[in-house]
């Protein structure tokens, strides 16, 4: 048996689950050891490939603080065979990790400008590291706005953290849900309806959008309506991925490989494709 081939980007590093926390009914946050190294530094918006023994491997965004690369935090919605197996792993369970992969949010380039983050559903998870990054360097940014839409009050991710963020005076947080019972005192409607309510300077704003594709299309329309330059809008795309290194071909979105050119892509780069069906 030969020792590991460190140059093989398809080889996962074995690691283990540190903690597991239920966020909402079908969504769990797993904290992993970095695997084979003391730290696995990542940029906000990047993802890891997580392997469950014998079941398979899927891309999962890093949802933790990039300032803590010794903890790999992933928020997983249990919807498929691998994500269900992953979400079921308890502390100390073995898991394989490859990564981090991909291009993240342009948090450095956004310094000096207002930043609007628009999240739909689980899309809040890949945006959270960007918010951590910005809040830890708060003085370098203008106004910062988080607009978040969930399906129902019971589906709101990171609820306690959102409450904490809401209390900050240097961060505008607005939450809406698609549908709710009479005990919900907040807004009902889609996340993009929040854009006209938020206060930011459209002429000097960078927008980060992550959610279902249809939601992102509407978010882009709302941002443009508000006067945000399309060159300042970034989206995180989702496609099938098997390798994360641009070799398997599955994640192609026109000429872009979502795994290595994205997942965060500027709207300018994909605008001709986003409006087409089945690209």
């Amino acid at each position: 048996m030969r020792l590991s081939m460190p140059s093989d980007p398809m080889r996962p590093a074995p690691t283990r689950v540190l903690t597991r926390r239920r966020e909402v009914a079908d969504t769990w946050t797993l904290e992993l050891e970095p695997g084979g190294t003391a730290e696995r530094p990542f940029a906000p918006g990047q993802f890891n490939m997580l392997y469950v023994f014998g079941v398979g491997e899927i891309p999962i965004s890093l949802s933790g603080d990039p300032a803590s690369p010794h903890r790999q935090v992933h928020t997983v919605r249990a919807v498929g065979p691998v994500s269900r197996a992953l979400a079921a792993l308890g502390p100390d369970a073995a898991v394989g990790v490859r990564g981090p992969f991909g291009q993240g949010w342009p948090v450095e380039a956004a310094a000096g400008a207002d930043v609007v983050l628009i999240a739909g559903g689980l899309g809040l998870a890949p945006l959270r590291p960007a918010l951590y990054y910005i809040l830890s360097r708060r003085a370098r940014y203008g106004r910062v706005v988080l607009l978040y839409g969930a399906r129902s009050p019971g589906d709101i991710l990171f609820r306690r953290e959102l409450e904490r963020w809401r209390r900050r005076t240097d961060l505008e947080v607005r939450v809406t849900v698609d549908h709710a019972g009479s005990d919900w005192l907040g807004r009902v409607g889609v996340a993009t309806n929040l854009v006209p309510l938020a206060s930011f300077d459209p002429g000097d704003t960078v927008a980060f959008v992550c959610g279902p594709e249809v939601m992102m299309r509407f978010a882009v329309a709302a941002l443009r309506e508000a006067g945000v330059d399309t060159a300042a809008i970034y989206l995180s795309m989702e496609r099938n991925m098997k390798c994360a290194i641009g070799h398997c071909g599955h994640c192609q979105f026109g000429p872009t490989f979502v795994c290595k050119d994205g997942p965060v892509l500027s709207f300018e780069r994909i605008r001709g494709l986003l409006s087409r069906k089945e690209i």
């Binding site: 030969r2 081939m5 074995p14 283990r16 023994f53 369970a93 898991v95």
Partner: peptide
Amino acid sequence: DEMRIIDE
């Protein structure tokens, strides 16, 4: 709870 990767 241990997993080991065996290379080809």
